[in-house]
């Protein structure tokens, strides 16, 4: 039906969103930081910066360096811990009328279990994104994200202790993303999200020293977008659960591309730094696209890749 308003609302892993555009963990703080310049209620969902059961100081500075069409970061998952987040940040987020997905991580399976247990039944938390793919800490993180067996154990452990929707966030470094996606599905994941940053390094050639205190970090931004498209496409074909696509979205066409590749929802990351209004622009752009292509809603777009 030409001219009718396309349906933007989606439901991912039981989480109802007014549109398929979320903001990615680590690029949006705990929401309140962006509330100054953006109406958070416009977003599909907010994925907050990674939370551990106990507070974590993160890496030494410098923690971020800009690269062509991207940046490499090694923040090192600094966070106030589960109690700090629930006390200092969640009350504000609860008032914003937007689903909140808490990104959680641990150094051991036991820590994942503890943090997942803590958030079970907490008012104002709609789901958990299990971070098994951060390249910037020595233990946990990516160590779980490159081995399907280990990933499966983390997910299964969290599954036992919470009724919240579980969304493992996958690493682009997994040797076989389809196998990893299936391992997540088989272990009780309700959806998967990908990609996390790509392990990277920048050297200052004048000083011949690494630019980051952590030496290595994770690359994000438009530079990684085509990598994300490929991995989302492969993962989406391998599983029945929804895929949340992210990696270098700077404008609506990037989000649409990930949805054509099979993503049921998307997340804007690094572009939140470039312009805090990127996510609403992407939302408007998707709506325009659906109108222009006479589609009834985003569902028609998801996985619509032709050959």
């Amino acid at each position: 039906m030409a001219g009718a308003t396309p349906r933007m609302a989606v439901e991912i892993a039981g989480i109802r969103m007014r549109n398929p555009v979320m903001v990615a963990s680590g690029t949006f703080g705990y929401g309140v930081e962006f509330a100054d310049v953006l109406d958070l209620g416009r977003l599909g969902a907010i994925v907050v910066k990674g939370i551990r059961i106990e507070p974590w100081a993160g890496n030494r500075a410098p923690r971020m360096v800009e690269t062509p069409c991207g940046l490499v970061n090694a923040i090192g998952l600094q966070n106030p811990g589960a109690e700090g987040f629930i006390r200092d940040y969640l009350p504000f987020l609860r008032t914003q009328g937007v689903p909140v997905i808490v990104n959680v991580w641990g150094r051991t399976i036991e820590e994942y279990k503890r943090v997942a247990t803590r958030f079970d039944g907490v008012e104002g938390v709609s789901g958990l994104e299990l971070n098994i793919s951060c390249p910037n800490i020595k233990e946990g993180g990516i160590a779980f994200g490159t081995d399907p067996k280990m990933a499966g154990r983390v997910i299964a452990a969290a599954r036992k202790v919470t009724k919240l929707p579980l969304i493992p966030k996958l690493s682009p470094n997994a040797p076989d993303i389809a196998r990893m996606a299936r391992a997540a599905e088989d272990s009780g994941a309700d959806a998967i999200s990908l990609i996390n940053t790509i392990p990277a390094m920048v050297i200052n050639v004048e000083t011949r020293r690494p630019e980051l205190a952590n030496v290595v970090g994770g690359l994000s931004g438009p530079a990684i977008h085509p990598v994300a498209v490929r991995l989302v496409w492969e993962a989406a074909r391998a599983v029945k659960i929804p895929v949340i696509g992210m990696g270098g979205i700077a404008e609506a066409r990037d989000a649409i591309e990930l949805m054509i590749a099979g993503a049921s929802a998307v997340a804007v990351g690094t572009a939140n730094f470039t312009n805090p209004h990127t996510a609403p622009r992407v939302i408007d752009g998707i709506k325009d696209y659906l109108l222009r292509h006479r589609m009834r809603g985003v569902k028609q777009l998801v996985g619509s890749l032709g050959r």
Partner: peptide, 8 residues
Amino acid sequence: CGLGACLA
């Protein structure tokens, strides 16, 4: 980010 979110 300039807003206090990214912790860089």
